[in-house]
């Protein structure tokens, strides 16, 4: 798979940098960053992405709203979505997965766990 585009929607610059840092270890991956859900939607409409990583607790538009809106878009109905959040309750996880996320990771996230989830969802080695 050549030229994988990943969008990272996260309000914390520290967390964003950590995720981007981890993703850069994968071959042929380019990462675009967004600060919140609205910024994320804007970037999703500007170019085609292969995977979305989103936080839940963000200003302006949270991650759950973003996931539900992305799933309504025909262009992104099959795009893998990973939620990375501090919300560790089982009901939050269920909600995220019901809304259309493919994986739900809780913080503090291990970067190798994130990488293996990305690889699984994109079916890359």
């Amino acid at each position: 798979m050549a030229g994988i585009n990943i969008l990272v929607v996260e309000d914390s610059p520290t967390m964003r940098q950590l995720i981007v840092f981890a993703l850069k270890r994968l071959k042929d991956v380019s990462v675009v960053e967004a600060n919140d859900g609205v910024d994320g939607l804007k970037k999703l409409s500007a170019q085609k992405f292969d995977l979305l990583i989103a936080d839940i607790n963000m200003p302006i538009m949270d991650g759950l709203k973003l996931v539900s809106l992305v799933r309504q878009d025909q262009k992104y109905k099959d795009m893998p979505i990973i939620i990375v959040t501090t919300e560790g309750a089982e009901e939050d996880k269920k909600r995220g997965l019901t809304l259309g996320a493919n994986a739900y990771l809780t913080k503090p996230v291990q970067t190798n766990q994130l990488i293996s989830t990305v690889k699984d969802l994109l079916r890359i080695s």
Partner: peptide
């Protein structure tokens, strides 16, 4: 703000 982010996101304090 960055110190707070590190303690929340990297250490996992609530």
């Amino acid at each position: 703000q960055i110190i707070m982010e590190i303690v929340i996101n990297l250490i996992g304090a609530e």
